Simulated assay, not measured.
Amino acid sequence: MSRTLRRGAIAAAAIVFSIGTLAACGAGNNAQTLQIKPDNAAVTKGDIKIQNALVITQPEKEAQGPAVVSATVFNAGVENQTLDGITLPGGSGTVKLKPATGSGKVVVPAGGSVVIGGKGNASAVIEGGREAVEDGNAQEVVFQLSRTGDVGLEAFVVPATGYYAHFGPDAEPAAAPSGSASPSGSPSGSPSGSPSGSPSGDASTGATPSGSASHSAGH
């Protein structure tokens, strides 16, 4: 065999060995590292799986108002579960849960899911807003399920901008009362104007009788 053919055979064998080694690594225990993972927090406990968990604050850093928890809760079980509460261990905010329609607890249906956050979905509002959480942090969030119990994870805290704007909190409602100055202005204008104009007009018409009296006196 010539030197050229021998070198080619050695190179081909090296390539086959490299491909085989990579394939073996991919099929090993670390094969999951090759999969695409979600950017947001996810956790599974029993029949419950929570994905895309986030804490979303007001879009402007200076804005005051509530923050919200956004997530999707899946139930792989055969029985419905209720989301009895959400807590922020180490935080000062209280989370208020509300179903998408009506009142009562948020239900995670058997074999289904429930979305928290966004228009038309269930909501989890964090009172305190900026005082409770801070943008850029990883906030521990615990979901309390009726059958599974506590399911905790760490969720990123992000402002309601860009893609997250559709899932963020409503604008701060405290700004509305400051614009209600119109009621105080209308009462003061109407009473003061009408009484002062009316008496002066009566006095001017009273000049007619005095004029007729002088005319009769001339006759």
Results as ranks from 00 to 15, higher is better:
V142M: 07
F143M: 10
Q144P: 02
Q144M: 15
L145Y: 09
L145S: 05
L145Q: 11
L145I: 05
S146A: 13
S146C: 13
S146H: 08
R147L: 12
T148R: 04
T148H: 06
G149V: 10
D150H: 04
D150T: 05
D150Q: 10
D150Y: 00
D150M: 02
V151M: 10
V151T: 09
V151W: 07
G152R: 15
L153Y: 01
L153T: 06
L153E: 02
L153H: 02
L153N: 04
E154F: 09
E154Y: 10
E154I: 02
E154G: 03
E154T: 08
E154N: 11
E154H: 06
A155Q: 04
A155I: 02
F156R: 14
F156W: 05
F156E: 11
F156C: 00
F156S: 14
F156I: 09
P159Q: 07
A160R: 02
T161Y: 03
G162D: 04
Y164M: 10
Y164L: 11
A165P: 03
A165F: 04
H166V: 15
F167K: 07
F167L: 10
G168N: 04
G168R: 00
P169L: 15
P169D: 07
A171V: 03
A171I: 02
A171F: 00
A171P: 01
P173N: 07
P173H: 05
P173F: 06
A174D: 14
A175N: 09
A175V: 14
A176R: 12
A176P: 00
S178C: 02
S178P: 00
S180G: 00
A181F: 04
A181G: 03
P183S: 07
S184P: 03
S184C: 01
G185C: 01
S186A: 13
S186M: 09
S186T: 09
S186K: 13
P187W: 07
P187A: 13
P187F: 10
S188T: 08
G189W: 04
S190I: 14
S190Y: 08
P191S: 08
P191E: 06
G193F: 10
S194L: 15
S194N: 12
S196K: 12
G197M: 11
G197I: 10
S198I: 09
S198A: 15
S198E: 10
S198K: 14
P199V: 15
S200L: 08
S200P: 01
S200I: 15
S200F: 07
G201L: 14
D202G: 13
D202A: 14
D202V: 15
D202F: 14
A203P: 09
